[in-house]
Every structure is written in C-alpha cells, then in structure tokens.
Design a protein around this nucleic acid. Structure first.
Length: 638
RNA sequence: GCCACCAUAACUCAGUUGGUAGAGUAGCUGAUUCGUAAUCAGCAAGUCGGCGGUUCGACUCCGCCUGGUGGCUCCA
C-alpha cells in the first residue's frame, strides 16, 4: 500500500498508509485525542474524522477547543433535532434544511397536519437526549444524484428531492445516524454522543428558500454548546436581554406608549420620554452646528408629482401614505431629501458655496408591513437626524470622512463600538451604471483611507445610490443599524441641481444622504437596552430627586428643589409623608441618578446628602456645590 | 403581508372541562413623622380587546376585525 506524509500543526511529519483517516492519525498520538477529535482540516478543507486520506498534506485536528467546533456541533445538532422529529412524527413531517446560525441553529420542517407548539419541545428534547445517549456513529455516504433523488422520493421527502434536483453535481454526500439520513455537505461530528448541551428555544414560520411566494415552513430554533455551563451562561444572557427590553423598561420608566386606537407603529411620548428625546435633539442640533451644518425645516406633505419626479413613486410607493385634497394628490414624506433639494434650488449656487450641508430633525412616515413593527425599533412614524450634503465631486471624499468622524464621535459619547458595511447597487434602482460605479468607488475609497475594517453587502444599497451602513454594538454586544451614508448622483440630475463653477459654466453637484443616529425612536430604544434604563446623568430625564425625612424639613426641601430647578438641574421633589426607605426604593426603581436626602442635619447645615443610584453616598454638600457638580458631569457627557 | 401564538382591573398575573371573575402592586381614605430598597388598616376599581355566530346561557367554543409577541420577507 502506498505511503503518504501527513504534516501536523507542530511541523512534525509522519508517514501513514494511504487511506488513513484523521481519526487514525489522532489515535497514533493518543487515545484521548482521538476521542476528542470532532473533525479535521486537511489542506484547509474541513473533513470528517472518518474520511480516508489518499495523498500527503497538512492536517489539523479539530477538537472542542478549536474555533470551528461550536459551529460544527450546532450544524450536527440540527441533524439530531431533525432525526428526533422524524422519529416522533414520522411521515407527517418532511425535512428541509437546518443550518447553524449565530448563537445556535434551526431546522425547517414542512407538515400539513402537524403544527408544532412549544409544548412539543420537552418531548423533542427528550428524544434528542435519548439519541445522543445512544452515541450512534454519524456516517458519511456518497451517492449518485439519481440514487439520492430516488431514495428521497421513496421516503416522500419532496423538499430534499427539489434541493438535489437544483444541485449541479453528479455525486452527493449524505450523512446517516441510525435510521436517519440527510443530504449534507458536512462535515459532521463523528458520533451523536458529542451532544451534551442543547435546548429548543423558539418556533417561527419561514418561507421555503426565503421567498414569500413559496410554502410556509415551520422553523424550530434551538441552541447547542460544548457543555452545560456555556449553555447556562447563554441562557442567562438571554434573560439579561429580556430584562433590558426597551418595551418593558419604556413602560416601567413611563417613557412612551402605543395605543391601538391611534394605530400601530405610532409612538406616544410621555413627559419623561419626550424630555429624553428633547435632550438628544438638542445635542444633535448643537453637534451639527459645530460641524458646519445648516438647520432647515421642510413640510410633512409634498405633491405626488414631486414624488413621481424623484422616483419614490415608482420605487417606494408601497411604503408611502397618500392623500388627496381639492383634487390635488399629496404624499406624506417618507424621506427628507426632496425639500432639501428644493431649498438648494431656491437660488443660484456657486462652487464657492459648496459643500452645503442641510440638517433637519425630519419626521417621516413609512408604511411598514404590520408584522415587522417592534416597539421603538421599527415604527411607522419617526424622526431622523437627517442631513443632505450637496457638494462638488472632488469634495465627496472629505465629506464622507467628515461624516465617518462625526459617527465616531457620537458613538464614543454614548459608549458604543461599531462595524461598517458597504452596500452596492440593488435590483430595483435608478441612475446610470457609470454614476453607480463612481459613487461606489467614492465610498469605498473613503473607507479604505480611514482604514477601519468593513464588509461588503452586494445589492443592498438604496434605490438611488450605494451606502455605508454603520452598526452599533451595544453593552450586550448586539448590533443595531443606525447611521448610514448614501452617495447619490441621480436625484441631483432628476431635480436639475446645478452650481456655477470657476469656469462660469453650470455643473452638477453630488448629494450625500446621511444620518448619524438614524431614527431618534430606534436610537432611544437601543439606548434604553444599552444602558438597561439607567441613563447617564446627561441623558436622564430626571437627574435628581429631593427626599425629606419628615415634614419638619419640607420647607427647606422645597427651597432646595426650587434652587436646583432654577439653575437647570432636572429635579423632582418627593414630600410625601412616607418613610425614607420607601422613597429611596421608588427613586431607585425609577433609576434616578442622584437622591438628595434632607433630614434635620441638612436643614441645620444648609446642605444636601446625595445618594447614588448604585447605593453609595457622598458627604453632605451645599446646593450650589451639588449643582456645579451636576453641570460638570453633564457637560462631560457622563 | 405571511406562519404560529397571545389579549382578564392602571401594571404584573391567577382563574372558570360553558352557569358573567380574583391576587399583588399602583390609586383613594385614615392612622403613622420615621435617616438610605417596600409602615399599617380600610375603600374603590374589570361590558374578561372589538364585532358577529353556536347555545337556555359565552370570559370560556367558532368566524371576522384590531392590537401585540416570536420569526420569515422587508427596513432607519
């Protein structure tokens, strides 16, 4: 038998007979390693431990500690779940696909009779545990296409047949564990005994192949980890996310509500929420003015003809609200750009005026499909911190970089990390190929120059231009789409925007659409979860609350309150005849940063005794000192 | 929009295998004047999301609608 050379990661080279498997190689090192080996990477291709090696090459054994391990276990665990479901429900259910995803995996099933409910989970989990305990080998089989089609057809697995028919290859790999066999590229873990910690998490509908014209499948989401401890940590994290849910906190902190009589996706801002919004809006105006933006305001309604001219009517109509009065059609604005272009057009512009940066806290309405609405994160009426930068082509680069640095500053103030993505031309779009090319390059060059990493999303741009999307990462490391920068050559063309160049000729400017936090509504939703409702002092709708111990201090407490409010501290007063502990508890639950306790001592010394939200206290200090302290902290965005 | 599920007092939730409902918190009244996360007692509070249907009788069963939840598709 021919001999081959296998190079291991430590650089050592060993001779083996051709046909040796990664498992055999592991065994030649130690029995323990062989037991631990889940798969292997041979010449950079992932393979099963039982795959015979026919030629020399580099071999890396994959064990539970390898970075690839978790994803593999999850993918294999999806097969385990499918096996369990088939054993429980047999031919009532057809299998489709089941990949690993972030934090777990899912499997999509088709069934006419069986409707999965969460009550089925314990049963399925028990079956999975039984199959895992049986420690069955998971074996790779190779079949011809026709053979595989015949086999799945005989089993009544129509979806598998369809998948294979669309595959452009003559032989296919399948994986078998016990009586269950599934089409799969692999690789998989060697035995079902590997699965030690898994849990079914939720149930959802999903279209076959993600297309809403196709049949609706039943998706079971689940997760799997290397061990029970990691699973527990993950479940605790989910629990933490639930506690921070902005819909729950929004109600508890009395920030906002929705009302079915008003309509879905339309927010009612209660006093504290409206104050929080106002603080953010004031911050936005100040930061934009600092960076050379001009504040403008456009109307809510614009004539339908204008939306036809812009392309919104053709490309965005299903998301818009229209109305007709005096036989004139109007569209409620879903974007702010048209008004900004018309402000630009209100008088002749020179190259000397550019760039012009129009900023508007623009309230827009978009008819989002009912099923996508979600608290503040997806609504139908929202306010964007929107700006349109109209500039010469040679200014694009500097302007895009300016926006990116603006994003960096703001993300830093709120304590977010972020990642960036470049999205290119979508199917449904307007404008010439040359302009798209130019615009995409401009964005890409700016990204490359700044040197921060980014990903490319093919075909994910806006209909009028490519875009850079910024995803903020919150305290739980979850990503949120907020900022976006879009480069647009088309709308300036359609609206015939011009400027007079140095040469005295008319030239076409470029327009950058950009938002920094995006929608104020969404951003506040994200902030609530990011801070778990405990806003930093500068954002807190209520920064301090004055608490008297008994009625004896009421008069002085009132004085302190008046004095603080007069110098701009957002302060409340609790004079109720309740025990101090009770008042503290309420202020604590309301997540107010500072409680100012006033007893006989403070009246005597003309001071206040501050208590922090975290339970710590400061020595008593004068009201003016406290006000100065708050002002300094807030000015530093703390 | 699609699939599944849910809707009981202001909030969180219990309950009736079809005979019209409770608890805690909040609210109100009274007592208590208290030093860093819940003082005590009493009172009041719901067309059981809306509209139809089945039934002697519907909060409970069925249908439609509205709103929400988890996803899918779509998106700031």
């Amino acid at each position: 038998m021919a001999s081959i050379q296998i190079e291991l990661p430590d650089g050592s080279i060993k001779d083996f007979d051709a046909g040796v498997t990664p498992h055999d190689v592991a065994l030649s090192i130690s029995e323990g390693l062989a037991r631990q080996t889940l798969a292997a990477r041979f010449n950079d291709v992932l393979i099963d431990t039982t795959r015979p090696l026919e030629q020399s090459g580099k071999l890396l054994l994959i064990t539970p500690n390898s970075p690839e391990a978790l994803e593999m276990i999850r993918h294999s665990c999806a097969h385990l779940m499918a096996q369990a479901v088939k054993e429980l429900y047999g031919n009532d259910v057809q299998v489709t696909i089941g990949p690993a995803i972030k934090d777990g995996f899912y499997y999509d099933f088709y069934s006419e009779n069986k409707k999965f409910v969460p009550e089925d989970f314990p049963l399925i989990e028990a079956k999975m545990e039984e199959l895992a305990r049986a420690d069955m080998p998971i074996e790779r089989k190779v079949m011809s296409r026709d053979e595989a089609i015949a086999m799945f057809r005989a089993k009544g697995e129509d979806y598998k047949v369809e998948l294979i028919e669309d595959l452009d290859q003559e032989t296919l790999s399948l994986y078998q564990q016990g009586s269950f066999i599934d089409l799969c590229r692999g690789p998989h873990v060697p035995r079902t005994g590997v699965f030690k910690a898994f849990k079914l998490t939720s149930l959802a509908g999903a279209y076959w192949r993600g297309d809403e014209k196709n049949a609706m499948l039943q998706r079971i989401y689940a997760t799997a980890f290397l061990n029970k401890k990691d699973l527990k940590t993950h479940l605790e994290r989910l629990e933490e996310a639930r506690k921070r849910d902005h819909r729950k906190l929004g109600k508890e902190l009395d920030l906002f509500s929705f009302n079915e009589d008003i309509g879905g996706g339309l927010v009612l801002w209660h006093p504290k929420g409206a104050l929080l919004r106002t603080i953010i809006e004031d911050f936005e105006r100040k930061e934009h003015l600092k960076r050379g933006y001009d504040i403008v305001v456009g109307p809510q309604l614009l004539k339908t003809d204008l939306w036809k001219m812009s392309g919104h009517y053709d490309n965005y109509r299903e998301n818009m609200y229209f109305t007709e009065v005096d036989e004139q059609g109007y569209g409620i604005k879903p974007m702010n750009c048209l008004a900004h272009m018309l402000i630009y057009k209100a008088k002749p512009r020179s190259y000397r005026n550019l760039p012009i940066r129009y900023f508007e806290l623009g309230t827009v309405h978009r008819h989002e499909k009912s099923g996508v609405l979600h608290g503040l994160l997806r609504v139908r009426g929202f306010t964007q911190d929107d700006a349109h930068i109209i500039c010469r082509p040679d200014q694009i680069d500097a302007e895009v970089k300016g926006v990116m640095s603006f994003v960096r500053d703001v993300a830093g103030i709120f304590g977010f990390n972020y990642t960036m993505e470049l999205s290119t031309r979508p199917q449904k779009s307007i404008g010439s190929d040359a302009d798209w090319e130019l615009a995409t390059c401009a964005l890409k060059n700016a990204l490359d120059d700044v040197g921060e990493p980014y990903e490319i999303n093919e075909g994910d741009g806006a209909f009028y231009g490519p875009k850079i999307d910024v995803k903020l990462k919150d305290a739980l490391d979850r990503e949120w789409q907020c900022a976006t920068i879009q480069c647009d050559f088309t709308l300036p063309e359609r609206f015939d925007l011009t400027y007079t160049g140095q040469d005295g000729e008319k030239h076409r400017p470029v327009m950058l659409h950009r938002v920094i936090v995006g929608s104020i509504e969404r951003f506040i939703g994200v902030l609530i979860e990011h801070y778990a409702g405990s806003f930093p002092l500068w954002l807190s709708p209520v920064q301090a609350i004055v608490l008297n111990v008994t009625d004896r201090q009421a008069e002085y407490a009132q004085q302190v309150f008046d004095q603080l409010r007069a110098v701009g501290v957002r302060v409340e007063l609790d004079l109720r005849n309740e025990k101090l502990g009770f008042k503290i508890r309420e202020a604590q639950v309301a997540k107010i940063p500072y409680m100012l306790v006033i007893g006989d001592r403070e009246v005597e010394d003309q001071t206040v005794a501050p208590r922090f939200r975290d339970g710590s206290t400061l020595d008593s200090l004068s009201v003016t000192d406290f006000a100065a302290f708050v002002a300094a902290e807030a000015a530093a965005y703390k």
